[in-house]
Amino acid sequence: MSVQEFKTPHGGSHFQKRFLLSVVCILLLACLFVGWSRSPMIIAVDRGFFETFTNVTRQSWALDTLIVQIFRTETAKNIPMLACVVWLVLERSRKGQSNAFFGQLVVGTLLAMTVSRVMQNFSAYRPRPLHNPDLVYELPHGIEATTLEGWSSFPSDTSALGFAIAAGIFVASKRLGFAAFLWAAVVVAFPRAYAGLHYPSDLVGGALIGLLCAAEVAPLLLHIIPARTRVAMYERWMPLLWSLGFLYMFQMATMFDNVRFYGSYLKDILGL
């Protein structure tokens, strides 16, 4: 790989356009934070989804458990997309092409997870579908009514991460990117609504967060770092940076379960 891949190819006018677009994205996120899940139209769409699929759940034990296991197995959701990332890194390195997309993917996914978790923890509590007494929905086989009890529903951080990964892949390969978006929608997002863990609007909101963070905000943040600094960091710390990249991808594959566990443990110790 050449250090040229860490230089910024765009000029000031491009940066200004991306900055304005990012401001629009931030305002959109603010709108999501304030009123997305309370919109009458959104509530109607959510209810329509569950009214439709309540006639599908518990009709087939095999179908229900297959979909439920997909949502419960973190590696089944994210590892195929992360394998595409590894393939792209190695293939583009072999061809002498830029791997700058990987940095954008890392920053974008980190932002998406952070923003979605902050919104979920500090926005108004929204009970998950399986805990909503006003929602008539027959839970599929294999789902207990106590699953994720007490956790707010909006937005879906799983959807945010999945679509942020897909957006990062799309930067490097349009064909693989489209496949990744389809995978994120069908395998990552849909099972969580089918299982009653999220409303469709939670998943769409998470997807928008992931897309905006990876496609718009991450490039802006990377642009702020001077090209000389990026080149110097790469030349001096390349083995360390790629090692950290591997560890970060492992955490993405497991939905940061270890980080969450130790974070909760530290929170209990500090009495927060």
Rank of each mutant, 00 (worst) to 15 (best):
L29S: 06
L203N: 02
T158H: 15
R230G: 00
G142F: 12
P9F: 08
P80S: 05
F154P: 11
A124S: 14
W237K: 06
K17M: 08
T229W: 02
A189T: 10
L105D: 00
L211R: 01
S22E: 02
L63K: 08
E91Y: 09
T57D: 04
S60P: 09
P226N: 06
T114Y: 03
W61I: 08
L244C: 13
D64M: 11
L21G: 13
P9K: 14
V231T: 10
L161G: 00
G11R: 03
H14D: 07
L32E: 10
S22T: 13
R236N: 08
R58A: 12
Q97I: 00
S159F: 07
V56H: 05
K267Q: 14
A76L: 15
L270D: 03
F178K: 03
L135T: 03
F190E: 02
A189H: 01
H10W: 06
R58G: 05
M113Q: 02
D202Q: 11
G263R: 05
F246I: 15
V136L: 14
V187P: 05
K174W: 07
V24C: 11
Q4A: 13
P40V: 14
E74I: 00
S264V: 08
A179L: 15
L272C: 06
M233V: 14
I225L: 11
H223P: 00
I165G: 01
D202I: 14
R47I: 08
T52C: 09
A193N: 06
T52E: 02
T54K: 11
V34G: 02
V188S: 04
K77C: 04
L90N: 07
P129V: 08
I42Q: 04
I209Y: 05
W36D: 10
T73F: 09
L266I: 15
F122P: 03
H10N: 01
K267D: 10
I70H: 00
C25F: 05
A30S: 12
T114H: 02
P191C: 12
V3T: 13
V115C: 07
A185I: 12
T146E: 12
I169S: 03
L247M: 08
A164K: 06
V217W: 13
T52Y: 10
I165C: 02
V186L: 15
A166W: 03
S60M: 13
S159C: 06
P219I: 02
L82M: 03
D257V: 05
V89T: 01
F190N: 00
L220S: 11
I43V: 15
C31M: 12
A193D: 07
F49I: 14
F101L: 02
N55Y: 15
V136I: 14
T8N: 02
G103M: 03
T254P: 00
V187D: 02
M119T: 10
W151V: 12
L211M: 11
L176Y: 08
V171C: 01
G150T: 11
A207N: 07
G103F: 04
T158R: 10
Y199F: 15
D134C: 06
T75I: 07
M252L: 13
I224W: 12
V115Q: 05
L111K: 03
A189V: 07
S93G: 10
N258L: 12
N258V: 09
L82R: 01
Y194N: 06
W61L: 11
H223F: 13
L247P: 03
W61P: 01
A62G: 03
F19H: 05
S13E: 03
V45S: 04
M255I: 06
T229L: 04
I165S: 01
T147K: 12
